[in-house]
Amino acid sequence: MTRDEFLAELASEGFQEIVTVTREAGQSLDTHTHPFEAKALIVEGELTIRARETERRFQVGDVFHLASDESHSERYGPFGVVYLVGRK
């Protein structure tokens, strides 16, 4: 998915807060939650998310979606990751 397509999709779904997140190579975050729904597009690098007993790797062009308060952990690829995320 392209950046413009993703931004249009976020707008149509009511995501008003949009931020860019950058994470360092090889780092991780233990299991946690966010008090908001998040939908993100990977723009550089890769990210692995473990949620609901499933682990999935996301690369450039992939989109991930997490519900508000959804428990998950994150692991960043060997070159880190940059993603554009809508929050609501």
Rank of each mutant, 00 (worst) to 15 (best):
D4Y: 04
D30G: 13
T48W: 11
R75T: 15
L84R: 04
R87A: 04
Q27R: 14
F36Y: 15
Y76D: 05
V82A: 05
F36K: 07
D69A: 12
D62V: 04
I42V: 11
L10E: 01
R52P: 04
E9P: 00
S68D: 12
K39I: 08
E55T: 15
Y83T: 00
E53A: 14
L7G: 00
T22Q: 09
E17A: 10
Q59R: 10
E44L: 07
E17L: 13
Y76N: 09
D69H: 12
S12F: 02
E24L: 14
R56Y: 10
V60C: 10
A25I: 07
Q59A: 13
E13N: 00
R87D: 01
R52N: 15
E55Y: 10
V81H: 00
V81R: 00
S68K: 13
A11V: 02
F58W: 02
R75H: 14
V81F: 02
E9M: 06
P78R: 09
G80R: 05
F6E: 04
P78D: 11
G26W: 05
E55N: 09
T33Q: 13
V43Q: 10
R23V: 02
Q59S: 12
K88M: 00
E55W: 11
G77R: 00
F79D: 12
E17I: 11
F15E: 01
R50T: 15
F79R: 12
F64W: 15
R3D: 00
S73V: 03
H34A: 14
G45Y: 04
